[in-house]
Design a protein around this nucleic acid. Sequence first.
DNA 1: TCATTTTCTTAACTTTTGTAAAGGGAATTG
DNA 2: CAATTCCCTTTACAAAAGTTAAGAAAATGA
Lengths: 193, 193
Amino acid sequence: MYEQFWKFTDMFVHFSDKERSSIREYLITRDVPKNHLLVDLGDISSEVFFINKGCVRFYYLTEAGEEITGFIFTENMFTGSHESFFSQTPSTQVLQTLEPCELVVLPYEGLQTLFDTVPKMNIFVRKLLEQRMSHAQKVVASLIMNKPEKRYTSMLELQPDLVNRIPQQVLATYLGITPVSLSRIRKRIMDQD
Amino acid sequence: MYEQFWKFTDMFVHFSDKERSSIREYLITRDVPKNHLLVDLGDISSEVFFINKGCVRFYYLTEAGEEITGFIFTENMFTGSHESFFSQTPSTQVLQTLEPCELVVLPYEGLQTLFDTVPKMNIFVRKLLEQRMSHAQKVVASLIMNKPEKRYTSMLELQPDLVNRIPQQVLATYLGITPVSLSRIRKRIMDQD
DNA sequence: TCATTTTCTTAACTTTTGTAAAGGGAATTG
DNA sequence: CAATTCCCTTTACAAAAGTTAAGAAAATGA
């Protein structure tokens, strides 16, 4: 159950067998159904999740009650409500499964302990966040630089699997547009070919 | 010259005098003029910067040659071309001063050495990145959830100094709109009051 | 200080998205 | 298997942003 997890950490740092067993003490696996809320609005997130199988998104709620997708996570990614988890404050975002998921769960307290007992854990998380930051900046740039249509075609190119995997209305808010507008864009592209 | 720097690090971790002097070995201060490129397109960024005084932005270049502002940094913030610096790859963004700046400079090699010799440095950078990630997510959410007008009024409220400090065309691309559109928004707001 | 350049604003027009409402199709359920 | 529900598409109209170009204001420099 943990092979994928160690394969992932190996991309950043190499934990020794001893370090692995220390970390392993705090890990558990968990299966959750589709549409399960891993973190609800206002929760103080107490866990981060590594996705063995499945698909997770976080979304914000507008005043009008719309769900705005912030990010979509799939297999072999870490997910969580960063802001709430790291600062231990009430979450302004909701973390929800889009499919039945098999997760590796790491609790907040466990991670804090590991930061002290396995110093390399700091390096692992630092490198993970470095990578995440680079990606977040690219997302911001794409939102500003590209029109919705371009963002959709980029996604078709870079993550074709994802386009067919998630509901259109989720995809739409992820791209920063309404489902209606996404439908129009899809038609425009269909007509061209 | 380094008081602000240590005051900043104190918000995340407490470096001992010994640790400070280790870190201090790799720090230098540098004054740069307005419109200076700290990192140019294609450069492999070899330094990060702490801003004692001044204002810095990073921007992307579109195919049409437009400069799209990704973020604006001011006093007491760390800045750099994250992606290029951390992965030591050619930068896809340009880091440019918007004012004459007084900077504290930390070279890449120095930081790598410090990660080994001052383990707490990993914790510092980890916490810094945790904070940055939370903020980056909020920026993404704001870009998707709010209309340009709302983003502008939010900025007026939260960073009123910045609005009058940076050129409108820079501010416009930072908000994800054209200078023309920003000008219209400003007029709309003026007329209301 | 005057001239030049740059930046910001305004206007007219086009394109795109948002909004609201209606319709079609597929999946779900009794 | 029919009915309901949910999701996606389509339409028509309103609102907003992009584009281009021209003019006003401000900053820059000789």
